[in-house]
Measured scan of single mutants.
Amino acid sequence: EDYYQILGVPRNASQKEIKKAYYQLAKKYHPDTNKDDPKAKEKFSQLAEAYEVLSDEVKRKQYDA
């Protein structure tokens, strides 16, 4: 799945936009606030993985290549 789609940001998003999108979605899908939703944990880990790659310039360049 596309990391940009997961975070809901365009491919040319700035680091600030990526961070903002991640924090909004992380708050929304955090397992502690969605105890009754088994998919929230999965969504949250996808968000974390996408953010880890896109927030790191080197990893992001490799991902975009």
Rank of each mutant, 00 (worst) to 15 (best):
Y22V: 02
A65W: 08
D64P: 03
D32I: 13
Q62S: 06
V58L: 12
L7Q: 00
K20D: 15
L7S: 00
Q46W: 09
P10H: 09
N12R: 07
E49G: 08
E17P: 01
T33P: 08
S14E: 06
E57N: 06
E1H: 15
N34F: 06
Y23L: 15
D56G: 02
Y51G: 02
F44M: 12
Q24I: 15
S14K: 06
E1W: 08
E1G: 13
A13C: 07
P31Q: 10
L54I: 04
R60Q: 01
A13P: 01
L7C: 02
V58P: 03
S14I: 06
V9Q: 02
Y22E: 01
L25Y: 04
Q62I: 13
Y4A: 01
Q24N: 13
P10F: 05
K28S: 09
E57G: 04
V58E: 14
L54G: 00
R60N: 02
A21S: 05
V58W: 08
E52F: 07
Q24E: 15
Q24R: 12
K43L: 10
K59E: 03
N34Y: 03
S14W: 03
Q5L: 11
Y51D: 01
N12G: 05
K20M: 15
K61E: 11
K39S: 11
K43R: 11
E1N: 11
A21K: 08
K16Q: 15
A13E: 01
N12Y: 08
R11D: 03
D64K: 01
Q46D: 06
P38F: 07
K61T: 06
K16A: 14
L25G: 06
E57A: 08
D37H: 07
P38D: 10
D56W: 02
V53C: 06
Q5H: 14
A40P: 04
S14G: 06
K61V: 05
L47Q: 03
F44G: 05
Q46M: 12
Y29P: 03
S45I: 13
A13N: 00
K41H: 14
E52H: 07
L54A: 01
V53P: 00
N12Q: 09
A48V: 14
G8L: 04
P38M: 11
E57D: 09
L47W: 04
H30F: 11
N12M: 06
Y22W: 09
I18L: 07
A13Y: 01
V53Y: 03
Y29D: 04
Y51Q: 02
Q24S: 11
S14M: 05
Q5W: 12
V9E: 01
